[in-house]
């Protein structure tokens, strides 16, 4: 008898607590969505397969935000690699502007748009701000003794136009444009055979195997092979000396005042997200970027942190678009 009543008491208690919980839950959901943000998982779309640099940056941020309890929800990376990045862009444009879908991408948006491979312009999306910057360079294999440095390289190309091949990840990619800049800055446009590989790994493999002579690359793709002595940087495609490689000549040393292209990685979103939600989300991202762990991760990947605000980020893209369009025009006129 006693047992039975205890059981009943238990049931009543359970029922009451469930009722209370449901009241609390509805109380929560009836709150203002801006106030309640975030109360469900946030997804960050990436236009490349898992394992690439953009994918890793997004996953690292998600990991830190979760570990340090910066946001009460999880951030999920969603890889949509289809349609030459168009699938991911369309998914972003069509997503609800509720602050639960963001898009991490980089200067590919500018270069592919210029070459007509992409119909969407970057400012059709909301630009939230920058995260990382990465400069580009030209590398050769260490055992290639036809040219010792970039000055000899330029002479060699002028003497043997069309002989050398240069690989890079993807036609119309930022790496491709960095190469075009290097060639234009030295007045040797069109004298090197441009070879677009499917991705960074494929370009590295072909270069290491001796199937291409040169490679246009961002720092992260090459630092470990420079460290192992397999390849060397010939030139940084920028005006400033790279702090990690102070001895490598820049475009300035080659007598050009061209500003080199920098790979700007940042966050995008569908237009129409309430200001407060954007601020809350970006604050969380910035907090994660300030951690020791993220600093270490950035250094390992040879990136530079560049937490720019929305306006600066857009201005960078506008500037790149203007200069690169100019470059593309002069090339097609030739």
């Amino acid at each position: 008898m006693k047992k039975k009543s205890a059981k009943r008491l238990c049931t009543i208690f359970l029922a009451m607590s469930m009722l209370l919980a449901s009241v609390l839950a509805t109380g929560c959901s009836s709150k203002d969505p801006v106030e309640a943000y975030p109360d469900q998982d946030i997804r960050i779309i990436v236009a490349f397969n898992p394992g690439g640099q953009t994918d890793l940056i997004s996953r690292k941020l998600a990991e830190i935000i979760e570990k340090e309890d910066i946001l009460p929800v999880s951030i999920v990376t969603v890889n949509m690699a289809g349609g030459n990045t168009a699938d991911a862009i369309n998914a972003t444009l069509q997503a609800d502007p509720d602050g639960y879908t963001f898009f991490m991408h980089h200067s590919n948006l500018v270069t592919n748009y210029i070459m007509g491979n992409l119909e969407t312009k970057y400012d059709e999306m909301d630009m939230l701000g920058g995260i990382m910057d990465q400069p580009f360079g030209i590398v050769k294999r260490s055992d290639d003794d036809r040219f010792a440095d970039v000055f000899e390289l330029v002479e060699y190309i002028k003497a043997h136009p069309g002989e050398l091949t240069c690989g890079f990840p993807g036609y119309a990619s930022p790496g491709h444009f960095a190469l075009l800049q290097f060639l234009a800055a030295n007045g040797i446009s069109g004298m090197v055979q441009e070879v677009p590989y499917a991705g960074g790994a494929e370009a590295i493999e072909a270069h290491l195997g001796g199937h291409t002579d040169l490679r246009a690359t961002n720092m992260g793709d090459s630092a470990r092979y420079v460290a192992s002595g397999d390849i060397e940087f010939l030139c940084m495609i920028s005006q400033d000396v790279n702090p990690d490689y102070p001895d490598v000549p820049t475009l300035k040393d080659l007598g050009s005042d061209m500003e080199g292209l920098v790979l700007h990685t940042g966050l995008f979103a569908p237009k129409g997200i309430p200001e407060e939600i954007k601020t809350k989300f970006m604050d969380a991202i910035h907090k994660a970027m300030e951690t020791e762990e993220f600093a270490q991760f950035t250094a390992e990947m040879c990136n530079t942190m560049a937490p720019t605000d929305a306006e600066t980020f857009k201005a960078l893209y506008d500037n790149d678009l203007a200069t690169l369009e100019e470059l593309a025009k002069t090339l097609t006129q030739q």
Binding site: P50, G51, L56, R59, E205, L208, S228, D230
Partner: peptide
């Protein structure tokens, strides 16, 4: 070499990088 042999090893490489290692010839 730090070059993925297929899609699955590309993800393994990514996993290593998230752990703070730069896989490569070294």
């Amino acid at each position: 070499m730090g070059i993925p042999g297929d899609a699955a090893t590309a993800v393994l490489l990514g996993g290593l990088q998230l752990q703070g290692l730069q896989p490569g010839p070294l």
